[in-house]
Simulated assay, not measured.
Amino acid sequence: MMLIRTAQTTDAAAIRAIYAPYVEKTAITFDLEVPSVADFEQKITHITERYPFLVVEENASVVGYAYASTYYDKAAYDWTAELTIYLDEEKRGSGVGSALYDDLESELTQHGFKNFVVCISLPNDASMAFHKKRGYVQVAHFKKVGYKFDKWHDIVWLQKSLLEE
């Protein structure tokens, strides 16, 4: 059974375990070292002061997490949130991420957010397909802005707007 709930600081070790392979094996994140459990505890505390930070459990184990954060720290951007999602490697493509994002986007919408943005490092076909399927469109492409594993990486920004055109 799947349960989506607000993250607690007691989830920090499980969240770290999910995040570690992305840091150690991929350029999906530009972190070069895996943050500590204490770093994740602080992140959970800080983010949940203003934004949702959700975890998904299956069989009482955390198998993924997603959260929103400040896009840019100026008052005019207060209706825009940057979204982040990470899943246990074995849960990708299982529908867990879609359920998690459904809840995250719903909470943000209920709190008045109008724009969701995501930053994706390239290559990352799975994340691009996931977000495009959810209605996100690419709005920017920055070339060779992150350096990891002895290689330069591009990033793209995608946006989903709830505002009328």
Results as ranks from 00 to 15, higher is better:
residue 3 L to R: 12
residue 3 L to M: 14
residue 4 I to K: 03
residue 4 I to N: 04
residue 4 I to E: 01
residue 5 R to M: 00
residue 6 T to E: 13
residue 6 T to R: 14
residue 6 T to L: 13
residue 10 T to P: 06
residue 12 A to W: 00
residue 14 A to N: 04
residue 16 R to S: 11
residue 18 I to Q: 08
residue 21 P to Y: 10
residue 21 P to D: 05
residue 23 V to L: 05
residue 24 E to Q: 15
residue 25 K to S: 10
residue 27 A to S: 13
residue 30 F to P: 03
residue 30 F to G: 00
residue 33 E to V: 14
residue 37 V to A: 02
residue 37 V to R: 00
residue 37 V to L: 07
residue 39 D to C: 04
residue 40 F to C: 05
residue 44 I to P: 00
residue 45 T to W: 10
residue 47 I to S: 11
residue 48 T to E: 10
residue 50 R to M: 14
residue 51 Y to Q: 11
residue 51 Y to S: 09
residue 55 V to K: 00
residue 57 E to F: 01
residue 58 E to W: 01
residue 59 N to R: 09
residue 60 A to K: 14
residue 64 G to E: 02
residue 64 G to W: 01
residue 69 S to P: 11
residue 69 S to V: 10
residue 70 T to N: 14
residue 71 Y to Q: 11
residue 74 K to R: 15
residue 75 A to F: 10
residue 76 A to T: 13
residue 77 Y to T: 08
residue 78 D to C: 15
residue 81 A to E: 06
residue 81 A to S: 12
residue 82 E to F: 07
residue 83 L to F: 07
residue 87 L to H: 08
residue 88 D to G: 10
residue 89 E to D: 15
residue 90 E to Y: 13
residue 91 K to R: 15
residue 91 K to C: 12
residue 96 V to Y: 07
residue 96 V to N: 05
residue 103 D to G: 05
residue 104 L to F: 00
residue 104 L to C: 01
residue 106 S to I: 02
residue 106 S to T: 14
residue 107 E to N: 15
residue 107 E to Y: 12
residue 107 E to I: 10
residue 108 L to P: 08
residue 109 T to K: 15
residue 111 H to E: 11
residue 115 N to R: 14
residue 115 N to Y: 10
residue 120 I to D: 01
residue 121 S to M: 10
residue 123 P to M: 07
residue 127 S to P: 05
residue 128 M to E: 14
residue 128 M to S: 07
residue 130 F to T: 00
residue 132 K to H: 13
residue 135 G to M: 02
residue 135 G to W: 03
residue 137 V to K: 12
residue 138 Q to R: 07
residue 138 Q to G: 02
residue 139 V to L: 03
residue 139 V to P: 08
residue 140 A to N: 13
residue 140 A to R: 04
residue 144 K to R: 14
residue 144 K to M: 09
residue 146 G to E: 03
residue 146 G to F: 02
residue 147 Y to P: 06
residue 150 D to P: 02
residue 153 H to K: 09
residue 155 I to A: 09
residue 156 V to D: 03
residue 156 V to C: 04
residue 158 L to P: 00
residue 158 L to T: 01
residue 158 L to I: 00
residue 159 Q to I: 03
residue 160 K to D: 06
residue 160 K to I: 03
residue 161 S to G: 07
residue 162 L to E: 10
residue 164 E to F: 02
residue 165 E to F: 10
